[in-house]
Amino acid sequence: MRTFEYLRPATLQEALGSLSGLANSKPMAGGMTLIPAMKMRLSTPARLVDLGGLEELRGIRVDAAAVTVGASSTHESVANSALVRAAIPALCEVAGGIGDPQVRNRGTLGGSIANNDPAADYPAALLGLDAQVLTTRRTLSAAEFFVGLFDTALGDGELITAVRFPVPAAAAYEKFKSPASRYAMVGVFAARTAGGVRVAVTGAGAGVFRAGVIEAALEEKFSVDALTSLRFPSDGLNTDIHADAQYCAHLVGVLARRAVARILYVGRR
């Protein structure tokens, strides 16, 4: 790790000031991705602004329409939140499947989506539920927020404060873990929402995306059968030492079917 200046602001206002005060300043939430990257000198911020002291980013609120999760909520707190489980159990599953118990104890929702790792789990949930990302400047839809590989619409000095997940009629997340990293080789988040069926895919491409052909087939008939003969195209999907693009495409289909089956036969939500 290179050395850096460390600041731990007590308020959001102070944090924003700290971030804009020096070039190459970076915010840190749980640090579960940033600290390893800094150790390997892949990330070398001059100033680190620790968001851990900010009350404004904490808390989980649930109402009839939505679950709003503060950006600094740990994966563990989401996974084990009775409120979230009652409203969107699939969200608990997503959070409970990230990393390992120790990572979940410190890693946060805001940190995860700000990093936008193409194999992260949360982006699939956000896109699948058409969540809104609340920042210090604006509200972005998930589709607007996730721009590309490790890239988001967040501007310099802009921080995520919370994510608002609309409560779907039903949702499920199916993850096929990459054996070594345990990140999603492919993850499929399927949801029946007020705006229709949404199927978001993580892991398989350069970033989270919606599987339009699957959504269309499920709109026609929300059933496993609707997907049986569907072949998800492999164009643009990843090929690496763990999985080739055709396999990833195949897994998208398999996991989509399994997610649909879970929605239909296991739990209503």
Partner: peptide, 14 residues
Amino acid sequence: WRIIANAGAAPVVP
């Protein structure tokens, strides 16, 4: 999966 798919037991995607 590739072996199974190549054997025709599982569909290979385009």
